[in-house]
Design a protein around this nucleic acid. Sequence first.
DNA 1: TGCTATTTAATTGCAAGCTATATATTTTGC
DNA 2: GCAAAATATATAGCTTGCAATTAAATAGCA
Lengths: 154, 154
Amino acid sequence: MKPKTSAALSTQSMLQLDQQLCFALYSASLAMNKVYRTLLAKLRLTYPQYLVMLVLWERDALTVSEIGERLFLDSATLTPLLKRLEAAGLLDRVRSAEDERQVIISLTAEGRALKKQAGSVPSEVFCATGCEVDELLALKTQLNDLRERLANNS
Amino acid sequence: MKPKTSAALSTQSMLQLDQQLCFALYSASLAMNKVYRTLLAKLRLTYPQYLVMLVLWERDALTVSEIGERLFLDSATLTPLLKRLEAAGLLDRVRSAEDERQVIISLTAEGRALKKQAGSVPSEVFCATGCEVDELLALKTQLNDLRERLANNS
DNA sequence: TGCTATTTAATTGCAAGCTATATATTTTGC
DNA sequence: GCAAAATATATAGCTTGCAATTAAATAGCA
């Protein structure tokens, strides 16, 4: 099988390639989730829960939708997840006094303390990727671009 | 903010980058799923169901684990999914006569017929990605490599 | 003012996806 | 041949993630 230039690719193979990309994206994402599952087990967090904690460690006392904007998730996903983190004692959910439609999410002392314990996670994930920094950077940029285009065309 | 070479990246920024890559992967995957949800609605298929159908359109009469090997999914995910496809009349699940532990998954006439209707999906997804073919190819390769490394290190 | 439109969260119902476990069958070792 | 190990699928229980809907509060405007 000869290598082909992009000009020589048939429409058919383009379409297959496209399917292959989507599948690669899908299965890489599942594989990443599995790695995080293992690493986050000691913190008793899932990956989406960890993402919420990362957001709050960076900036505390956000509304549900402010968290959602950063993570591209809506209240249907976040509300139950935040309730579980609240039940775990990591954060508080309080109606805003100024605008009672909003719910302010604030870390508890326990939630802030967890940041230290989570300190080793990034380097462990980095090792699991087995990537060079340049590679990570390029991939990150491409995936962000792809996400934006997909979100605009759906 | 000056652009940095990889040599100049601090450990801290490397770790942040790594987190950013994982989040980019996660959210791009969700965005892709949403695009497929729209496109597959007319076929009454979800994306994982579509993947199973792609596998069977390529090669019919596979066992549950043969499908699982191709999609990196196990029976806990596949059995309920296959039951739904069976209930939709797209495939049959029959215990193998030679080895009664195995279940053979075979397309029904309706399942085979759906292939034609699905013909337009790849090009529609391709448009939604807004990518050049070269870009798709590079990304696919990188994601497959990443998936493999993550799977080996978890 | 009062009434409608908008915004924010929450809820419902569904399909994945995972770990851990169970069940049935086949293979292996003696 | 038979008990133990291995294999294949299924099930239970949990957490996402989503579309669609609801409930409540605020904003906007005649």
